[in-house]
Amino acid sequence: MTGQAASNAWSSHEGAAALAAPTSTEKRRAFDGRILLGFFLPIAIALLWEAAVTFGLAEGRLVPPPSRIIATLSALAETGELWTHAWMTLWRVLVGFIIGAFSGIVLGALSGSSKTLRQLLDPTLQALRAIPSIAWVPLFILWLGIFEASKVALIAVGVFFPVYLGIAGAILSVDRKLVEVGHVFRLSRVQLARRILLPAVLPEAVIALRSGLGLGFMFVVAAEFMGASEGLGYLLVDGQQMGKPDQILAAIIAFALLGKLADSLLVAGTKPLVRWQDTVRERL
């Protein structure tokens, strides 16, 4: 029968797909090479600077050579100071992130899914968003004191807006065509939200959470500048006041590593949810 012939034709299509597959692995290998290329510049600059200081061409007092930064980092790590500070910073970001992200998701979902609620909520939130978040600091200190509460509040505000905007926008931009599939199968509002809207917004929600987390790390520095006795931000201020540029750079590196680590954890944690969509993610 022709059905047989047709299925043979299909398998030959798949044969063609299998032949096409190696190009994607090749692409990946070329991509890996380019990642290594990205390491070249910073390493070269570090080595040059190290050599310049070693051979006495530069003093390296204000811009310490890599070896001194590493020494400072390991000294801080040995005394355990580094871990207390890093942990304190991480804890603040985490609490602020949870509060900010949770309220961002809830309000974003409300304003994305109901026109009335959007008209009620959105103008106020957009107006609040126009305020540079750091401007809240004096008020937060008056209201919440100079200790943890005001710091966490500032971080939460920083995290809230990108999450709110991302979630609301994602819900509004869900493909009408997929929603219609839900209508055809007569899903209730709740089922539609759970089976179509939620999975459809997940990829954008993850992106929103990631930018929220990034802002959380930005705001934790500001929060720790406004008076803290612990935290990586405190190390920065202390390094400046004591004239220790190596400590400042060590703290900056710790910030970078911590931020990257938190982001990777978030990505890894949400990966199973958006695996179907990994085409775009792999490039992020």
């Binding site: 065509k177 219609e180 599939v181 209508h183 055809v184 007569r186 999975p199 969509q277």
Partner: peptide, 20 residues
């Protein structure tokens, strides 16, 4: 009046749910 359980539709595009 409205979608009926005994009526199915195939659209011009497949409209599969990409996460399933």
């Amino acid at each position: 009046s409205g979608p009926h359980p005994a009526i199915g539709i195939v659209f011009q595009e497949p409209r599969l749910l990409p996460w399933l």
